[in-house]
């Protein structure tokens, strides 16, 4: 464990908590892509199947459980409790265009052709595109509440810190997980455009982030 990965995991947790609390307290999921949250819940489900078969550390187990619980709790807020405020009209990204290529690729490019490994690979590839429905929804509505942008900021920060974690681990331990790194770089690139808007608009105190 290194400071980059630990702070990355903390940023990830903060992002998920920000989103959950925003929906819970405002009793609304307006502007939130339920599809992205479904994809994230699928990412955690297919990645953390080893929760019961491989014990790595207390931290690892606790964080996996927390991520799974919060992911499903957020999905249930969006699709059940506050479903009236769910803007399915704007959340129109065709997730099948993500799931099919990601599933196909996880069968083609993986470390070993076993169910657990293929599901893990699927979760890695899926995570890199899971935010797209949310980013698409923001471009479609042309705006995002500032709390939603803070959620995206911490999510992007978590991914950026993971890149630093991999540089550190390669330098210190010679660790290099090609599938995770390539997929992580692609995922982080998707946040670049958002980061630009975030720093030039939201942090200028304009409250809402409105797209040009």
């Amino acid at each position: 464990m290194n400071i980059f990965r630990l702070s990355g995991d903390v940023c990830h947790l903060v992002a998920i908590i920000i989103l959950f609390l925003k929906i819970w307290r405002s009793k609304s999921c307006a502007g939130i892509s339920g599809k992205s949250q479904l994809l994230f819940a699928l990412v955690f489900t297919t990645r953390y199947l080893d929760l019961f078969t491989a014990f790595i550390s207390i931290y690892n187990t606790v964080m996996k459980v927390v991520f799974l619980v919060l992911a499903y709790a957020t999905v249930s807020l969006i699709y059940f409790r506050f479903r009236k405020s769910y803007d399915s009209e704007s959340d129109s990204f065709r997730v099948e265009f993500l799931l099919v290529p990601v599933a196909g690729l996880s069968f083609l490019e993986n470390y070993s052709f076993t169910p657990l490994e293929i599901l893990w690979t699927f979760s890695i590839y899926l995570e890199s595109v899971a935010i797209l429905p949310q980013l698409f929804m923001i471009t479609k509505t042309g705006e995002a509440e500032s709390i939603t942008t803070h959620y995206l900021f911490f999510l992007g920060l978590y991914r950026t810190l993971y890149l630093a974690n991999w540089v550190w681990r390669y330098h210190e331990e010679g660790f290099f997980d090609q599938i995770a790194v390539v997929s992580g770089v692609v995922q982080t690139i998707f946040y670049c455009d958002f980061f630009y808007l975030y720093f030039t608009r939201v942090l200028r105190g304009s409250g809402k982030m409105t797209l040009p």
Binding site: H12, I56, S57, N110, S112, F175
Partner: peptide, 10 residues
């Protein structure tokens, strides 16, 4: 391929 990569990351 090399599948001895530890899955210790979240």
């Amino acid at each position: 391929e090399d599948d001895k990569i530890p899955k210790d990351e979240l």
